[in-house]
Design a protein around this nucleic acid. Structure first.
Lengths: 204, 204
DNA sequence: CCATAAAAGCAACTTTAGGTTGCTTTTATG
DNA sequence: CATAAAAGCAACCTAAAGTTGCTTTTATGG
């Protein structure tokens, strides 16, 4: 049986010492290449070079670039969003924007997000996986709206507003696509506009 | 002197007939591969195959994938946005969203946008070029806000609102990144929220 | 309409880089 | 400290990018 591409850390036979170090180096190298060169930059020999590890070692445990990327991203916690609960939903929006800004300003995180975006599209296998990648990160952020509705700050109709997209989309466009980051003023205006719009239509 | 990668259509020595057909086929093939496989899919032999053209012909006129992509995108008019002027700025916002939706739903346009996003980042040469790619497409869409201010619909302070990002960002995120397109309802809510927010803060 | 030179096509070649294999050396672990 | 797991090494195969000299096709001007 081929044990490659299906061996989580815990199932490795010698998880202590060198093996662990080598594995870490390989997954870190994968993220570095992914951020710098995109998915196209991930070949097993390239990862081995970046990690200063012999390529046979990489081939022993992973069989394809996608496996490497998948495993590396699972381990990469920086892309996770913090829990946000400021007490008011406007505060939550502001906090979310700030958190997202910090994240997207980190070159490695930005590069990785770009790569993940590029990996979507026609190819079904990748597409499904990319979907699985985003889902948990989105779900985490429906709750503030729900809480606001429970608190009576917003009407139930607020659920129709695609808040995640409204808040994160502009940052994505300005930082990742056009690479003309929003100014301090524009960020403030962004938050204010969304807050005012939602309050005007769904506030109590 | 190397005449490759610096020969616009008009400077070719025999621009009629076959040469023109071959050039068109090559640039079309470039866009197809770019949309389907991303920038990584662009190699000169691959483009030649896709265009049903001999690879020596491609090598004769272009020296690198980036040259091909650059020239192909310059010729690709589908990514241009229509002029919008409905008379009211809310109407303009709605019209812009609809136009952008149509665009982003086209698989080829979506694939190309994804590829362009992925091409941004560290590498300075590419980064500059990607910037040049977006600029004309953005500028075209400051005018509706300006017109609204001139008409007296909005206060001058509305200029601070990053409207392009606010309107296009959510569509970008939902269609290109997460691939969970907004529903009809959500699109309406998006337009309504932005309109209400801007009106509340900057309306007259 | 035809002569001709530009440009496309073709085939054989070199080079580069991904991927494979058998073996040796290092080292975690009982 | 014995030993087996895992990393390293070197030589290899293969596929695809890139190159070259030449032949065939065809746009174009006289």
């Amino acid at each position: 049986m081929d044990r490659r591409a299906s061996v989580p850390e815990s199932n490795r036979r010698r998880p202590g010492g060198r093996s662990a170090r080598v594995r870490e180096a390989i997954l870190r190298a994968t993220l570095e290449l992914l951020a710098e060169r995109g998915f196209a930059g991930i070949t097993l020999p390239a990862v081995a070079r970046q990690a200063s590890v012999n390529k046979t070692t990489v081939y022993r445990w992973w069989s394809a670039p996608l496996d490497l990327v998948q495993e590396a991203l699972t381990d990469f916690e920086a892309l996770a969003l913090p829990d946000i609960d400021t007490g008011s939903w406007e505060g939550d929006v502001e906090a979310f924007v700030r958190a997202r800004l910090r994240l997207i300003r980190d070159p490695m995180a930005a590069g990785i997000l770009r790569a993940v975006i590029a990996m979507g599209g026609s190819d079904t296998t990748r597409g499904e996986w990319v979907d699985a990648f985003w889902k948990p990160r989105e779900r985490k952020w429906r709750s503030p709206v729900e809480r606001a509705i429970e608190r009576g700050e917003l009407a139930a109709s607020a659920r129709e507003v695609p808040l995640v997209e409204l808040v994160a989309g502009p940052l994505l466009l300005s930082h990742l696509a056009t690479e003309r980051p929003l100014s301090r003023k524009e960020v403030s205006a962004l938050v204010a506009t969304i807050a005012a719009g939602v309050t005007a239509l769904h506030g109590r």
